[in-house]
Every structure is written in structure tokens, then in C-alpha cells.
Simulated assay, not measured.
Amino acid sequence: MFQLGVYNKALTRKAITGLRYKSTSQPLTWIEYFKLKKQSNRINMVSGIFTGLGGALITLNYLGNIEIDPEKPIMGFDPLMVMGGVVGLGAFVGYLAGPTIGTIAFKLINKSKLQQFELKNSEFLTRLIKNRPDPSYQSFSNPIPDYYGEKIYSLKDYGQWLRDCNAFRRKAKEFL
């Protein structure tokens, strides 16, 4: 029984070191992380535009195939206005579905770097949480700078964000 436990420890240690030596990829740098973050955002935006157009076209195609009396109001509104609103609603729902498709596409494109990207992303978000100022001190004349860090796409942007956060803290302390 004791021998089996020693064997399992040796086996797991060997398996872990084997995995460590098999991974030949370099760790993801911050510059590469920010490039991937920008790529992810762009893919999500473009897919949102295409799915929004697709949603509008599908809704327009459906509404074009049903028979509506143009002289009879729908819930008290002009039928053409209602149809335009429904096409706009279809485009909006399609746009909301876009980032889901974009995320799937991003994961397929960057399959080899995805695990490292997720680790860097969690580290980045931890840094944001640690360095962001308290939003309860914001006012109309002193808005909080980019609370979620959505506009940070480079080390330069991150440094500027840190400076903006420090300026916010300083203004909040001086004027309260």
C-alpha cells in the first residue's frame, strides 16, 4: 500500500515535469496581450455590425412576405412606422448577438495563445481592480476615468490611465 502511494507521487511529479518541458511557447508579454485584446475588440465590433445587418435583413425579409393592410393601423400606429421599428429591433438584436460570435471566432483564431491570454487578462483585471479609484467621489466636474479599462490597448494607455486615476484621487481629496 505504501509503495503504491510513492509510485503515484513519482508518476505525477514526472507527468508535471514532462508537461513543463513539452510546452515550448514563450509566456505572453504585455505588448502581445494588448495586441490580442485589441484584436478581440475589433473582431467583436465587426461581427456585431455584420450580425446587426443580418438581423435587419432577416426581419425585413420576413416582414416583406406577410400581408399587411397599409390603411389599417397597428396598435394605433402607422403600419410602415411599426415595420421600420421592428426592422430596427431586429438589427439591434442581431448586433447584440455579434460579440458572442466574435468571441468564438477570436478563440478559434488564437487557439494556441488562448490559455496565456486568459491568464494575462485575469492579471490585468486584478491590476485594474487594485488601482481604480473609488467611484463614489465622482462628480460632473470630476468624472471617473475608464472604470473598467475598456479603452486600454497599450502600455502607454495603461500608464495614462494610472495618471488619470491619480489625478482623480487628488481632485477628490482636495475638493471634499
Rank of each mutant, 00 (worst) to 15 (best):
Ser40Asp: 02
Ser40Pro: 00
Asn41Val: 00
Arg42Trp: 09
Met45Val: 15
Val46Pro: 03
Val46Met: 11
Gly48Leu: 09
Gly52Asn: 09
Leu53Met: 12
Gly54Asn: 04
Gly54Cys: 06
Gly55Arg: 03
Leu60Tyr: 13
Leu60Lys: 13
Leu60Arg: 13
Leu60Asp: 10
Asn61Tyr: 15
Tyr62Pro: 04
Ile66Asn: 04
Asp69Val: 07
Pro70His: 07
Pro70Ala: 09
Glu71Trp: 14
Ile74Leu: 13
Gly76Asp: 10
Gly76Tyr: 10
Pro79Ala: 09
Met81Phe: 15
Met83Phe: 10
Gly84Phe: 11
Val86Cys: 04
Val86Lys: 08
Val87Arg: 06
Gly88Ala: 14
Gly90Trp: 03
Phe92Gly: 10
Phe92Asp: 08
Val93Tyr: 06
Gly94His: 08
Tyr95Cys: 12
Tyr95Glu: 01
Leu96Asp: 00
Gly98Cys: 02
Thr100Tyr: 02
Thr103His: 07
Phe106Thr: 02
Leu108Asp: 05
Leu108Met: 11
Ile109Glu: 07
Lys111Trp: 02
Ser112Met: 09
Lys113Trp: 02
Lys113Pro: 00
Leu114His: 11
Phe117Ser: 06
Glu118Arg: 15
Leu119Pro: 02
Lys120Met: 14
Asn121Pro: 00
Phe124Glu: 01
Phe124Pro: 06
Leu125Tyr: 15
Leu125Gly: 05
Lys130Gly: 05
Lys130Val: 05
Asn131His: 12
Arg132Cys: 07
Arg132Ser: 13
Pro133Glu: 06
Pro133Trp: 04
Asp134Ser: 06
Asp134Val: 02
Asp134Arg: 08
Pro135Leu: 02
Tyr137Glu: 03
Gln138Ser: 04
Gln138Lys: 11
Ser141Asn: 12
Pro143His: 05
Pro143Tyr: 06
Pro143Gly: 07
Pro143Cys: 02
Pro143Phe: 08
Pro145Glu: 09
Asp146Cys: 12
Tyr147Trp: 12
Tyr147Asp: 01
Tyr153His: 11
Tyr153Gly: 01
Ser154Glu: 08
Leu155Ser: 07
Gln160Ala: 14
Gln160Pro: 00
Trp161Asp: 06
Leu162Asn: 06
Asp164Ser: 12
Asp164Arg: 15
